[in-house]
Write a protein that binds this DNA or RNA. Structure first.
Lengths: 201, 201
DNA sequence: GTCTATACAAAGATAGAC
DNA sequence: GTCTATCTTTGTATAGAC
C-alpha cells in the first residue's frame, strides 16, 4: 500500500519508535514520558492522547521485544527438517545478528520479565520448546544428560556476552570495537564447541 | 569485639540490610525510599539521617555487590598454584553456590553497570584478569583461540541461567524447584564440557 | 536517635484553546 | 490532531518536637 510509507512516519508511529528506544535503554521505571516525547520530537500530551498511559505504551513495546527474542528460537527448534548441528548453527547465527543490531534487547527483556513475571506466565508459548524437534534430537544424541542443560549452555554462550557486555568492558576484558568481531567469531566457535561437547565422551 | 553483635542490629545496619534486599530486587529507579524504610521497620526520616540520600545509600550497596561478584573470579584466576582444570571447577562451584544464595545479584549488577558505566570505569581492577594465570594457561593450552572467548563461554554457561531464570520459567523450560538441582548438577557438567572443548580438536 | 509533619521537586495525566 | 498550561500524585528530603 502506498499509504504505508506515510503511516510509518505518523505521530503514533514516531512515539512508538521513540518508546522502543528509551524503554529498551533505561527500563520502565527509569524512563520518563517526557524523555519519550522529546525523543519523538512531539508534545508530551500527545503521548497520552494516542496511548492512554505510560503503562499501556510500555506493554505494547514489551510484547514486541519478547516476540523478537523468542521468535528466533521457536521456529528453528520446531523445524523437524534440519539436523541438530544445523539447528545449533542457525540459533547462534540468528541471535548474534539480532543482538548486534539490538544490544539492549536481552537485558531489557530479562529485567522486565523478572520485575513482573505474572505478565508473562502462559504468554510465552509454554512447551513450544520442551516438545520441539530440537529437544528430541538432543535426547537421542545424548540420553545421559538432561537436554535442558545443553540448551541453557547454548543460550548462555550465545546471549550472555550481550547481557554482560558493559561488565566485560568495565573489567577490561574487551576494548572498544573489538566486541563486534568477537561476536562474529562466535558464530563459528560456538557450534564447534557444542559439537565437541556432544561428541567427545 | 562484643559490641559487634549489637552493632549488627543497629538502625543503620537494619536500613542497609533492607536496602540490599529492595535495591537488588527492583533496581535503583523502581525502588522508593519508603519501601526501604518499611522493609527495615523504621521511619523514613532515619534513612536520610544515616545516609544523606537514596543515591548515597545505593552506592554503598552497589559497591558491595560488585565486589561479591568479582570477588569470586579474581582470586581464582590469579592463583598460579592451581591447574587450569582446577580453576574451571572452582569458578563454577563458587559461582553456583554464591548465586543460589543471591539469585538477583547478576541481573542487578549488570543492569546498573549498564545504566551508569562511568561509575565503574577503572574501578573494577582492570587487567586483573587479562594478565592472570588463568589467561596464560588458556593461551598455552589452545593458542589457536582467543582466551577471552573461552572465558566468556565459561561465564555464560555458569552465570547466564541465573540471569535468565525468570525467562526459563516463563518459557516452561524449568519448573518449580527443579532449578536448584539443575544448577547443582552444572557444577559437574560445566567443567566436563569445558574440558571437552579444550581437549577435542 | 527517633518520630511527625511538611516542604519541595519530579513525573504522569488531563483540560481546554486552537 | 496538536499545543500550552495546569492538576495530581508520588517520592525525596528536611525542620523541628521529643
Amino acid at each position: 500500500m502506498s499509504k504505508k510509507a506515510i503511516k510509518d512516519t505518523s505521530t503514533e508511529e514516531k512515539i512508538k519508535q521513540a518508546a522502543r528506544i528509551v524503554f529498551t535503554k533505561k527500563g520502565f521505571a527509569a524512563t520518563r514520558t517526557r524523555d519519550i516525547a522529546e525523543e519523538a520530537g512531539i508534545n508530551l500530551a500527545l503521548l497520552n492522547y494516542y496511548f492512554r498511559s505510560k503503562e499501556k505504551l510500555f506493554q505494547q513495546v514489551m510484547m514486541e521485544k519478547v516476540q523478537m527474542i523468542f521468535g528466533v528460537l521457536f521456529p528453528i527448534a520446531n523445524n523437524s527438517e534440519t539436523t541438530l548441528e544445523e539447528k545449533v548453527a542457525l540459533i547462534v547465527e540468528n541471535y548474534v545478528d539480532l543482538l548486534l543490531l539490538n544490544p539492549d534487547l536481552p537485558l531489557f527483556v530479562l529485567s522486565e520479565i523478572r520485575n513482573n513475571p505474572e505478565h508473562f506466565e502462559n504468554k510465552v508459548g509454554i512447551n513450544m520448546i520442551k516438545q520441539s524437534s530440537l529437544i528430541s534430537q538432543l535426547k537421542e544424541k545424548r540420553a545421559d544428560v538432561n537436554p535442558i542443560q545443553f540448551l541453557i549452555s547454548l543460550l548462555g554462550m550465545t546471549i550472555f556476552p550481550f547481557v554482560a557486555s558493559p561488565m566485560l568492558h568495565a573489567a577490561g576484558l574487551v576494548e572498544g570495537n573489538e566486541f563486534t568481531s568477537l561476536m562474529q567469531q562466535r558464530k563459528q566457535l560456538i557450534p564447534l564447541w557444542i559439537n565437541s561437547i556432544l561428541d567427545c565422551k
